[in-house]
Computed example of a mutant assay.
Amino acid sequence: MKAKNSKTYVGLTLKGMLMGAADAVPGVSGGTIAFMTGIYEELIFSLKQCGLTALQILVKQGIKATWQHINGNFLLAVFGGVLLSLLTISRAVLYLLDNHPILLWSFFFGLILAAVWSLVRHIKKWNLPLILTFIIGAVSAYYITIISPTSIESTPLIIFISGMIAICAMILPGISGSFILLLLGMYAPMLTAIKELQVFTLVIFASGCATGLISFSHVLSWMFKHHKTKTLALLGGFMLGSLNKVWPWKETIETIIDRHGKEVPLVQKNISPFVFETLNNQASYLWYAIALFLFGILLVILLEKMGSPDSN
């Protein structure tokens, strides 16, 4: 890996913070942000290095050699930013999700739509297998977004397994780890654990995340090494299919009462802003939504420049 200066590490931390803020929202993937900012492949490679070989190097050569082997400074900067964001910025994102969902979803809709273009433009020549791969990715992600959430008991084993599954989704562009937690019925319990700093629960969840990251990163690294173009097509399809989840105007079909006695949506369907106004007797904020949609697209362009070789 190319040597980095302190300014570059500050940039990596900021990108990590953007990833953390995105991962707090059910429907938006931190992996999407990682890809747009140009750190995705290095992230996957660095995570892959954190395996048995790293343990052998640790025993034989010590901490310094191990740190270099796993690209430790890079991982520390990125995941430090993710953690910092989850403890700070994510609170603001969750506030907007509760109080101004249409505006927040509009912004993310524009961001993800532009991110699809940002990803697939790296595919220079399309053919039938690539088109089919893209369609498979889109259909798979769409299907995930329409699955009805479930509710399971938050046992240590379930928390560990949830961490493994969710973190794999979080590093896949287009598949939201938070939404996977929502489907598993673990989204609210994990948010509560973060807000209340429930150390035991967080340690178990983090252990599951670490296990999932190290395991799944090997798969992704192999895919990028041997089938990069098809992998890009698949991930682009994932992002396109996930747009179903972030459509701003929804009709709530079914609700549940959470542990705080608050009624929250469980099953929703997408509707037009005009139908939304009629059903709910409230403004659709259409023009504000369009403005934030365009801002999301603009942000992708800026993130692309952050991720260009000239900016690193």
Rank of each mutant, 00 (worst) to 15 (best):
I146A: 10
L243G: 13
P26R: 14
V219L: 09
L298Q: 13
F216C: 08
I180D: 07
L83H: 10
V59Q: 06
S215H: 05
N99G: 05
V199Y: 13
K195T: 11
A77D: 07
V139T: 11
S207F: 13
G261P: 13
S242E: 11
G241I: 04
F108I: 15
M239V: 02
G72R: 00
L84C: 11
I257R: 00
M36E: 02
T252E: 08
E304W: 01
G51I: 10
A77Y: 02
I147P: 14
G237E: 10
V219K: 00
L84K: 08
L213Y: 08
F238N: 03
Y285S: 15
K228G: 08
M1E: 05
L12V: 02
L87H: 06
F35E: 07
K64F: 12
Q61D: 14
G212P: 12
S272T: 15
I89C: 05
I44T: 03
I204D: 05
V28Q: 03
L157P: 03
F276R: 13
A114W: 15
G11C: 07
I57W: 13
S106L: 09
W287Y: 14
L104E: 02
P101D: 03
N73L: 09
L240S: 10
I63V: 15
F200K: 09
L294N: 09
S178N: 02
T231H: 07
L103V: 09
I146H: 12
I146F: 05
C209D: 01
W117K: 08
I135A: 15
V116D: 06
V82E: 02
P309D: 00
N127C: 06
V25G: 06
K15A: 04
N5P: 03
M306K: 02
G81D: 00
